Amino acid sequence: MEIALANADEVYAFYGTHRQPVLRARAAYAYLAARYRPVIGYDDDARDRITALRRREVRFVVCANHLSDKDQFVLAATAFRTPLRRLIGHIRVLAKDELFDDAKQRAQIDVMGGIPVFRPKDHQMRAAVAAGRQMIDVCVDRATRYGDSIAVFPEGTCNVTDPSTLLPIASGIGHIAHGIAGNVEVALLPIGIAYPDDTRVGARVVLGVPELIDADDTPAAITRQVRTRLQDSVSRARALMADM
């Protein structure tokens, strides 16, 4: 199956039921943890709160800032080195469709839990927006039926302007979180990433305190919350970088 906007129906039908090979996913995450070696920090009681919510089988919507094409690897490495490790094999990561073009790379992304996103900036606007609605439905259904958590880089593109300040946040994350909250408990978990150099090894990563999302909140309100909380985690990650 080709990952192409023209056959978005088939693409999302496949990823709506796709199962990760859990053992291979854990091995891949372990390898990335050893390779990228992120330095982890937590806000307040974030570590204990993540553990408590995970044990309650609360789903997470993980949001992280986007600085590099290596961010998804650093995020995976972070998951392995934190209480999120128990969720490996049940974390779906939104990734731009072009990353699925190469067959070998697509196989690796599938192991890691990737779900393709057809960005309007890369495609015909109306068709991409329609596909985006399908993608949101898949994320909501996976969280509800399969217990998956969803990881998103809500800026939608790499921030090459000012890494200390988030780019505008796309509304898709608000719609995903709102849809999940209407069915099961879900918590927003912000993760800020800062790089001390160009190697991407030893990134400073700060996990914010996860907060349950109110099912009555609108997607717009959730999107605003994402921006506020993720910006705080980014600032803390940069402070961690400066302190070391």
Rank of each mutant, 00 (worst) to 15 (best):
L99M: 15
A79P: 04
G113C: 02
R47T: 11
A76F: 08
L67A: 03
L99G: 07
G174L: 07
A77Q: 04
R142W: 05
P154E: 03
A95S: 14
M125C: 03
L167R: 05
G114C: 01
T144A: 14
T51N: 10
L67G: 02
G172E: 00
F73E: 09
L167P: 01
L94M: 15
D110T: 04
Q108R: 13
R47D: 13
R119P: 02
H175I: 08
T51M: 10
P168R: 06
L167E: 04
V58A: 09
T165V: 15
D97I: 00
T78P: 07
F73A: 13
G174R: 00
A143E: 03
K70S: 11
A130R: 13
V111R: 01
D43R: 08
T165H: 13
D110Y: 02
Q72R: 04
I50E: 08
F118G: 03
G113K: 00
D43W: 07
I169M: 08
I169V: 15
G147D: 07
R54Q: 10
L84D: 07
T157S: 11
I50N: 07
H90D: 14
T165D: 07
D44Q: 11
D110K: 06
V93H: 04
D162K: 00
I150S: 05
G156V: 08
F118R: 01
G156H: 04
S171T: 12
P116L: 03
C63E: 02
T78D: 08
V140T: 11
R142G: 04
G172T: 01
D71H: 01
T157Q: 11
G147V: 10
R81A: 15
D141S: 15
V62F: 04
V138T: 12
G172N: 03
T51L: 12
G147T: 09
L99H: 11
I176S: 03
I109V: 14
G156S: 05
V74D: 02
G174P: 08
F100W: 14
E57P: 03
K70F: 13
N65D: 02
D69G: 10
I136E: 05
R119A: 01
R145N: 14
Q105D: 11
R59M: 08
Q105E: 14
S149N: 02
H90K: 14
I150D: 03
I136A: 13
G113M: 05
E98H: 14
E155D: 09
H66D: 00
E155Y: 05
A107T: 12
L75S: 04
H66F: 01
R126L: 13
A130G: 03
D71R: 00
E57D: 14
I169S: 05
Q124H: 06
E57R: 13
S164H: 10
I136F: 06
D44L: 12
A46L: 06
R49Y: 06
D137G: 10
V74I: 15
V160P: 05
I50L: 11
V58D: 05
K121W: 07
L84H: 09
A103I: 15
G156N: 05
I173A: 10
L99Y: 13
K70G: 06
D102P: 09
L53E: 08
